[in-house]
Computed example of a mutant assay.
Amino acid sequence: MSNTKYILGHFEDPDDMMHGIDKLQENNIGIYDVFTPMPIHGIESKLGYKRSRLPIAAFCFGLTGTITAFSLLYFCLVYDWPMNIGGKPAFAMPDFVPIMFELTVLFGSYGMCFTFFFKNHLFPGRAPRVMDLRATDDRFVIAIDAHKNPYPEKIDNLLKEAGAVEIKHNERKYVSYE
């Protein structure tokens, strides 16, 4: 069994990379991931990615902020220490709205920031998952799992036909515990 874990096809042009994706999919070769230095419109649908669940997470974080603000205000101003200020009732909902809005925005923004860090392995102590550092600068990289696609010569030929300027075989790193 080969030590090759991923086959990386490097492209200089996004159109060549999209053509390479088409060629690989025509030959039923599964693509692990694609790394680009800039967003490319329509690549998610071409690779078959599902719609992101981040809007649902943002809504949940915002709802948590709203409930937290309402609970804190209700407990402090109505239940624990009700005060009669100018004849207003203790439970005056319009007075709660600005603080509920602010905590909704605060929880939503911090929650999405932490979600972004967690999802992209950017927390301190976590190694980032970068196949090739040039993919963040000027190269478009198609990564193919070598274990799911047992014909590396065929994949190399397809990538060269599509316009790949370089093809790399990333090898598995074995760690010795002795």
Rank of each mutant, 00 (worst) to 15 (best):
C113T: 14
F116R: 14
C60R: 03
H121E: 07
E178K: 09
C113V: 12
P152R: 04
G20M: 01
T115H: 04
V105R: 00
A127G: 02
G20K: 09
F61M: 02
L103A: 02
L106C: 09
L103P: 01
A162N: 09
Y110F: 14
Y79R: 08
S176I: 15
M93T: 07
S45W: 01
T136W: 15
L122M: 15
T36F: 07
D33N: 11
C60D: 00
G108H: 05
F96L: 02
Y6H: 12
L24P: 03
Y49R: 08
N120P: 01
L159P: 07
L54V: 14
K160R: 14
P128T: 12
M17C: 05
F91L: 11
D138W: 03
G125S: 08
S109A: 14
S52P: 08
L158R: 09
G9S: 08
E153Y: 00
I67G: 07
R53A: 05
F61Y: 13
F107S: 05
M93K: 01
M93E: 06
L133S: 08
E178Q: 09
I21Y: 04
L122R: 09
D22T: 15
P150G: 06
H41A: 12
T104G: 10
N84M: 05
K88S: 10
Y49A: 01
F116N: 12
G87Y: 04
F116S: 14
F96K: 01
G42H: 01
K46G: 01
Y110H: 10
G108L: 13
I85G: 02
P94W: 05
E102Y: 08
G30Y: 10
P82R: 11
F70G: 01
I56N: 08
W81N: 10
Y174Q: 10
D22K: 14
P124W: 08
K88G: 12
K88P: 11
G65E: 03
I21D: 00
E102R: 05
G65F: 04
L63S: 15
F140H: 05
L8A: 08
K154S: 13
S176V: 15
T115Y: 10
K173M: 08
N84W: 03
H147M: 12
F91M: 11
N157Q: 15
I85W: 06
L159E: 06
M100S: 03
G111K: 05
A135D: 02
R134L: 02
L63G: 14
W81F: 13
Y74L: 10
F118V: 13
L8R: 07
L47P: 05
V165S: 11
F61K: 00
D33I: 02
T115M: 13
D137I: 11
Y49L: 06
S2V: 13
E166Q: 11
H121T: 06
M18F: 11
T36I: 06
I56T: 15
S71Y: 10
Y177C: 07
K168M: 05
I85K: 03
D16W: 00
D13C: 13
L158W: 09
K119M: 14
Y151N: 15
Y174S: 13
S52G: 12
N3F: 10
G9Q: 04
